[in-house]
Amino acid sequence: MSDESNETVAVLNTTSVVGIAVCFVLAVAALFALPTVQARGGVGFDTAFWIISAVELVAALGIAYFVINLHEERG
């Protein structure tokens, strides 16, 4: 027998949804940003490339974090 007053429901965490969207847009933008980073940042290809790669990895980790926390329990 369950006590209904203690039941919780899982609802979408808005912050996580926004976080996933931001990370995705960041990752897509980074794929096309290398020439801009080189030109505006005044850096060589290798440096720009590692910056882009770091952005991709951070975006993936961000998405992993936000997906794991996609729902929150509300009582």
Partner: peptide, 23 residues
């Protein structure tokens, strides 16, 4: 709840890959 998590991840994977292929 759980299916949503798989969908979120699995949609993003070919999503970013399509952008990479386009670039």
């Amino acid at each position: 709840k759980e299916a949503r998590e798989y969908y979120a991840i699995t949609i993003l994977v070919p999503g970013i890959a399509s952008a990479a292929y386009l670039s």
